[in-house]
Amino acid sequence: MRFMIIIKATPSSEDGTPPDEKLLTEMGKFNEELVAAGIMLAGEGLQASSKGARVRFSGDKRTVVDGPFSETKELIAGFWIWQCKSKEEAIEWVKRCPNPFNEESEIEIRQVFELEDFGPELPAEVRESEERLRAELASRQK
Rank of each mutant, 00 (worst) to 15 (best):
E21W: 14
L23V: 11
T25M: 15
T25F: 13
T25I: 10
E26Y: 05
E26I: 10
G28I: 11
K29N: 15
F30P: 09
F30A: 10
F30C: 10
E32Q: 15
E32G: 11
E32W: 07
E33P: 01
L34H: 04
L34W: 01
L34Y: 02
V35Q: 07
A37F: 05
G38D: 02
I39G: 02
I39W: 02
I39P: 03
I39F: 04
L41E: 08
L41T: 01
A42L: 02
G43L: 02
G43N: 01
E44R: 12
E44M: 09
E44Y: 09
G45S: 12
G45K: 07
G45A: 13
L46T: 06
Q47Y: 10
Q47A: 14
Q47W: 09
Q47F: 11
Q47C: 08
A48E: 06
A48M: 11
S49Y: 06
S49D: 09
G52R: 12
G52F: 12
A53P: 12
A53L: 15
V55Q: 11
V55K: 12
V55C: 14
R56A: 15
R56D: 14
F57A: 15
G59R: 13
D60A: 15
D60L: 15
K61T: 15
R62P: 12
V64L: 15
V64I: 15
V65Q: 11
V65W: 04
D66C: 07
D66T: 12
G67L: 07
G67I: 08
G67Q: 06
G67K: 04
G67A: 08
F69Y: 07
F69A: 05
S70P: 13
E71T: 05
T72L: 03
T72A: 02
E74W: 00
E74S: 09
L75D: 10
L75M: 13
L75S: 11
I76D: 07
I76N: 09
A77M: 09
A77Q: 09
W80F: 14
W80H: 10
W80E: 08
I81Q: 06
I81L: 13
W82G: 07
W82Y: 11
Q83H: 13
Q83N: 14
Q83C: 08
C84R: 04
C84S: 10
S86Y: 06
E88T: 13
E88V: 12
E88G: 15
E89Q: 14
I91Q: 10
I91N: 02
I91C: 07
I91S: 03
E92G: 09
E92T: 11
W93R: 05
W93T: 05
W93V: 03
V94E: 04
V94C: 10
V94L: 08
R96W: 04
C97A: 13
C97G: 04
P98H: 03
P100H: 05
F101N: 05
N102F: 08
N102G: 12
N102Y: 10
E103R: 03
E103M: 06
E104F: 06
S105N: 05
E106T: 06
I107K: 03
I107M: 07
E108K: 07
E108S: 06
I109H: 02
R110A: 01
R110M: 07
R110E: 03
Q111C: 02
V112K: 04
V112L: 12
V112G: 01
F113L: 04
L115P: 01
E116M: 00
E116V: 00
E116A: 09
G119L: 02
P120E: 03
P120F: 00
P120K: 04
P120T: 01
L122K: 02
L122P: 00
L122Q: 02
P123I: 02
P123M: 01
